[in-house]
């Protein structure tokens, strides 16, 4: 995972110089984006997903270490929340299903991020509609052997 992150950062730096993404990286990103779209479609059954209101996703702007990143999701009245890390080799992170005794429809956990990316959360609300939000987390290279 760490090598992966370095590779990606190195690729990012190179492309910043060249002004374009190398074709291999672009193809890889397209494939990852498709995988994420498929995962969302599977979760929603193809229903429309709106951006923003009704769901919050908390995560640090900069993660000191990609191995343990604290995140928190909340969506009032939601029955389910799906969390995805599109930049990970395996994008799904967790699916939370809330029962009737839950106080707030929230949960916190700690996750692994292979590289800097937009973590994405999609909630199924009480009325059956879907909302999504995303949050960018920068994963840094640590100081000593990190």
């Amino acid at each position: 995972m760490i090598l992966d992150r370095r590779d990606v950062l190195a690729a990012g730096a190179a492309s910043a110089v060249a002004g374009i993404l190398p074709w291999a990286a672009r193809a890889q990103e397209a494939e990852a984006a498709k995988a994420v779209d498929d995962l969302i479609a599977e979760f929603t059954g193809g229903a429309e997903v709106t951006e923003g209101d009704g769901i919050t996703l908390d995560a640090p702007e900069i993660a000191e270490n990609g191995n343990t990143v604290p995140i928190s999701v909340e969506a009032e009245g939601a029955s389910e929340i799906l969390v995805l890390a599109p930049g990970n080799p395996v994008p799904p992170v967790a699916t939370f299903t809330f029962g009737e005794l839950v106080g707030k429809h929230m949960a916190s956990t700690r996750i692994r991020l292979a590289k800097t990316q937009d973590i994405t959360a999609i909630a199924k609300l009480a009325d059956g509609k879907f909302v999504r939000t995303a949050r960018n987390v920068k994963v840094t290279i640590g100081g000593c052997g990190g």
């Binding site: 290279i141 100081g143 000593c144 990190g146």
Partner: peptide, 8 residues
Amino acid sequence: DWIRADHL
């Protein structure tokens, strides 16, 4: 001080 993206 910084050492890469970290503080010593």
